[in-house]
């Protein structure tokens, strides 16, 4: 067993454990913290794969910026404690049924379409160097990059419009 494999196993178990704990926890603050732990474990995967830029971006954006907003909203609304019983009775059986269907579908596709001739095109770019990532983003993947920025802009404008409309109604 190489050192890298041991490291991979530790990080993988942490990621899975954190994901399961996030689902099981009845306290939403704990759930949010387990999700952060999961994101950190995923960042370590990126580091193992030799992509430090993506690893650090993953921590900054997901574990840092997005999750702090989740925590902030949970704390501001005082929604730490989930009720012991589900408010919607059929939610749990429905969730189990849908999850099983999805798992069965995935398994079927993997085993039916699995043939050695179908190979996912491996990525040839250099992910270790920020300069080459930047060049790739603005050169080869310029269109997806710009589309993503437009989607984000639309989301920002949407948030502004929603908060404005609420203000007007409260004034009336």
């Amino acid at each position: 067993m190489t050192a890298e494999l041991i490291l991979f196993l530790i990080v993988a178990l942490t990621a899975i454990g954190a994901a399961v704990a996030m689902l099981m926890s009845r306290n939403t603050v704990y759930s949010a913290l387990f999700l952060i732990l999961n994101f950190l474990a995923v960042a370590v995967f990126y580091l193992i794969l030799g992509a430090p830029f993506i690893a650090l971006a993953q921590i900054t954006v997901y574990a840092g910026a997005i999750m702090i907003l989740f925590l902030f909203v949970i704390m501001m609304l005082g929604a730490e404690r989930l009720k012991e019983l589900d408010p919607v009775k059929w939610q749990r059986p429905a969730a189990i049924a849908i999850t099983l269907a999805l798992a069965a579908e995935g398994t079927y596709i993997v085993f039916s379409k699995l043939n050695p001739s179908y190979v996912v095109e491996s990525f040839s770019g250099n992910l270790a160097d920020p300069v080459s990532i930047g060049t790739l983003l603005f050169d080869k993947y310029a269109l997806p990059f710009e589309v993503t920025s437009l989607i984000l802009l639309a989301a920002v404008i949407g948030a502004v419009v929603l908060s404005k409309a609420e203000k007007k109604e409260s004034e009336q």
Partner: peptide, 9 residues
């Protein structure tokens, strides 16, 4: 980027 990451954490 590391500096920003640690700041955000």
């Amino acid at each position: 980027l590391y500096l920003l990451t640690v700041t955000s954490i």
